[in-house]
Design a protein around this nucleic acid. Structure first.
Lengths: 155, 155
DNA sequence: CTAAATCCTCTAGCGACTACAGCTTCAAGA
DNA sequence: TCTTGAAGCTGTAGTCGCTAGAGGATTTAG
């Protein structure tokens, strides 16, 4: 009898992807940038993951969902790997991130107001030469919005 | 007498940059991607801009400040170049963008709440093995936040 | 006429993936 | 045992909207 591997904790990358709702390519990317430790490989060079990886990847995904940068996650993971260290650092990272989120919300709300104002003055139909949207964009002086830098709206 | 150029409307790229608060490199980038038309050049191959360029660049900058994507700005500029077309398209672009902004605000607010909750349970000081932040990240089931994709927080 | 400031093009880098090409390996059914 | 199709592998390039730098040319003020 060959020793039977515990199948429930040894899985290929696609399985891990399904379990954690992280794409295969993203898992490989996390390994590449050092967030996820390199797993064992089969003789044919394919990755095989265990429970440790599932947990770590869940941690990473949750942090990413909360908008933490990969750099911050790296720091948080290092902390969680050294259970004896005080958690002050974790608190600093989390509150800094919270501040960032709040700042971003504030800016987006100011944008929202300005866009509301602009869009409301034109309900469509008229010709462009009279369109309030185009005019508002052309003439900055109409604007109540005093920007402090551009906002990145991708997501 | 050589014909005197109207100096106040013929300027090098650095001047245009100062007038519009757009960086020199960014101006060249806008030309490269076709937002700003290529200006005249001196014999020595340097760009010389006129009033038209100031206006167009101001339009672009204002739209970027409001978070419009370069693609949307391209469309808006095309509209404003054809004054006879109806402004329905402009209205569609603006309201779509407004919806996007609102969606983003909603997601960030949900993030904000979750981060508040996590950060509040730990005020620092204790060891990592007991830190609520680390635990919350490790254990997704604690989480009231049901994500619909990741949020991009760069800016 | 000289020197400093500005300008030019071209290339690469950012963050966090995503997509693809071109190949190899695995696992299940006949 | 063989076959076939899904899934895996590496490596490279693309996304967005700039930003930075190298290495050189031009302009302009003194």
């Amino acid at each position: 009898m060959t020793p039977r591997p515990r199948l429930d904790t040894v899985m290929p990358i696609g399985q891990l992807a399904k379990h954690t709702a992280v794409k295969v390519e993203t898992i490989r990317y996390y390994e590449q940038v050092g967030l996820l430790p390199p797993p064992e490989r089969t003789e044919g060079n394919q990755r095989r993951y265990g429970r440790r990886h599932v947990e770590r990847l869940a941690f990473i995904r949750h942090a990413r969902d909360l908008g933490f940068a990969v750099e911050s996650i790296r720091a948080l993971l290092t902390l969680s790997d050294n259970p004896a260290t005080p958690c002050d650092d974790a608190h600093v990272i989390a509150t800094a991130h919270l501040a960032e989120v709040r700042h971003k919300i504030a800016r987006l709300r100011s944008l929202e107001q300005e866009l509301e104002r602009i869009a409301a003055t034109c309900s469509g139909g008229v010709e462009v030469c009279d369109c309030a949207i185009i005019e508002a964009l052309a003439d900055h002086s109409q604007c109540r919005h005093h920007e402090d830098g551009r906002v990145d709206l991708r997501s």
